[in-house]
Write a protein that binds this DNA or RNA. Structure first.
Lengths: 145, 145
DNA sequence: GAATAATAGTTGATTTTGTAACTAACAAGA
DNA sequence: TCTTGTTAGTTACAAAATCAACTATTATTC
């Protein structure tokens, strides 16, 4: 140790959070990446449309806390793969209503099932109360509530 | 809702973790990025050397859970800025022992102080017991213990 | 002690992200 | 209506992360 030390990097919250986030993403990533060649941004978009129904890119951005350029590119890819359709909103022709195709819906259902299983598996390491508390703290740290 | 739904993306652990990690990194990033023009990879390397003393790139990689190419580039930058020195290890000439220069140490101390303050600020949102539990859970999720 | 494998670290090519500038459409006020 | 401002989304360029191939050195095995 160079310094007398009560401070350990491995307890530094941003570091720990990043590491935990990375690790926990890794397991699930195998599913959408290896199985469907998708990026994280893409499955998030897919997921939003599957989970909450038709919406615009902007709405997705707000809900998923993603920058609009990420969304724009993810939408382009998903549309290319015929997982979603884009239809100009006639009431505001700047924006488009995005909706999953039947093919997109199939993939969504599959991924969602995987996600639920993965979530359950992660949760098994802790008590139900701990998980609730963890979620609450993460939501606060994420600035969600 | 397209599906009947007990599952909400905003409660999905990998999503929440990523968001919380991003947000919590952002605040601290201002310090090392704006003040010293450093990248996250760079400050992590600097931090390890300041916190745990002289070591090799490989050891940093293991402790910080960072890929060797990231470290290689971070070390190059830090060395360029004269924040650290590299001396070939004569017992194994493949590796180098990395150590902070006095200038590097100054920056480390400054950043470390900022880090502690930032950590304290984050912690204020929760009780001491909650923070302890959160750390424990994150360490587990990160695969650290 | 060659030959082969493994390791520390670097480099280059590719992919992905981030930033800023842009287009097209709408909104509001004079 | 004309100007000015705002918003949805895209695109181009720069920064960064990822992946694979490479050099130099050490370890292993026959």
């Amino acid at each position: 140790m160079t310094e007398k030390d009560d401070f350990d990097l491995r307890n530094f919250m941003p570091f720990l959070l990043n590491l935990a986030a990375e690790q926990s993403s890794l397991g699930f990533q195998r599913t959408y990446k290896n199985r469907y060649g998708m990026l994280r941004t893409e499955w998030r978009v897919l997921f939003h449309l599957g989970n909450y129904g038709e919406m615009t890119a902007k709405e997705i951005g707000e809900r998923a806390v993603m920058h609009k350029t990420k969304i724009s590119r993810a939408v382009a890819k998903l549309s290319q793969r015929r997982y979603l359709t884009r239809t100009r909103d006639e009431r505001d022709r700047r924006s488009e209503r995005l909706a999953l195709t039947p093919a997109g819906l199939v993939v969504y259902r599959e991924l969602r099932q995987e996600a639920e299983a993965y979530e359950a598996q992660l949760g098994k390491q802790f008590t139900a109360g701990e998980v609730v508390l963890l979620r609450m703290m993460l939501r606060r740290l994420a600035g969600l509530d």
